[in-house]
């Protein structure tokens, strides 16, 4: 569904991503793991067009690297960005309405979608008219996911949904992702919490220093000692590639 070929991202003279290639098949959960500063967010920003990137991005058989972010969203690429980035000064409901921006000519469809996601996240329905900035971290993450789903994506990208959340809340969020996948959603999940991410993913890529250093089926990677070394270092660190 998504093919990224030789993608590089630079901020001024800083090369944050160095020619990364990944592939996400329809219906898969693919995890992208790696320590802070490994280039995970840069890869996602390159895929969604939030930063200029060199390389090819193909979605649903169509090159999208020349498109603006809203155009990519319209084709079905949605992202719940790092740190959630919900619209903290608007209500929960307004955040969801903003997610329906591209469907604004079809209010019934938006309303139906909103009802669907209130059913998926009953907590959000309880807080419907609350200002989003006053939600708890877990609720904010749910809102970020629901808001992204409001764009009716084919591919849902999540950037560190566990950030700053207690483990039990993270587990809750991840359970939701598994449910979404069962309903046919394709998910690209970026996580620092490798163990949790690998528990629900089909395949995974490990990013280090802006390059892919490891890839494979998730269960196998879960037992691979090189994962721990990628985070905490070790005798083998830097030989993984």
């Amino acid at each position: 569904m998504l093919t990224v070929a030789d993608l590089s991202v630079s901020y001024g003279p800083i090369r944050a991503l160095r020619g990364v290639s990944i592939r996400v098949g329809a219906g898969e959960i693919v995890a992208l793991i790696g320590a802070n500063g490994a280039g995970k967010s840069s890869l996602l920003r390159g895929i969604t067009g939030l930063v200029p990137a060199a390389g090819r991005v193909t979605f649903d058989g169509r090159p999208i690297d020349g498109l603006s972010t809203p155009q990519r969203v319209a084709l079905g690429v949605a992202m719940a960005p790092e740190g959630r980035q919900i619209f903290t000064d608007q209500t929960v409901h307004e955040n969801l309405l903003l997610g329906g921006h591209l469907l604004r000519s079809q209010p019934q469809r938006i309303a139906a979608n909103i009802d669907r996601f209130y059913a998926l996240f009953p907590r959000l329905l309880e807080r419907r008219d609350q200002i989003a900035g006053t939600l708890s971290g877990g609720e904010q993450q749910m809102l970020a996911i629901a808001r992204a789903l409001m764009t009716e994506p084919k591919l849902l990208i999540l950037d560190e949904p566990s950030l700053g959340l207690a483990p039990i809340i993270t587990a809750d969020i991840f359970r939701t992702l598994v449910g979404l996948r069962r309903d046919g959603m394709t998910i690209l999940l970026v996580e620092q919490m490798a163990n949790q991410a690998l528990a629900i993913a089909d395949r995974a890529y490990v990013l280090e220093g802006g390059s892919i250093v490891l890839e494979g089926a998730a269960p196998a990677l879960r037992r691979d000692p090189r994962i721990r070394e990628a985070y905490l270092g070790g005798d083998l660190a830097h030989h993984a590639a």
Binding site: L50, P70, A74, A78, L98
Partner: peptide
């Protein structure tokens, strides 16, 4: 209104607004 919500969204966070499909 929808247009007001878009304005406020862009004011708060341009990237997040673009991810909603808003033409910033």
């Amino acid at each position: 209104t929808a247009i007001g919500r878009c304005m406020r969204a862009v004011a708060l966070n341009r990237d997040a607004a673009a991810l909603m499909g808003i033409d910033v």
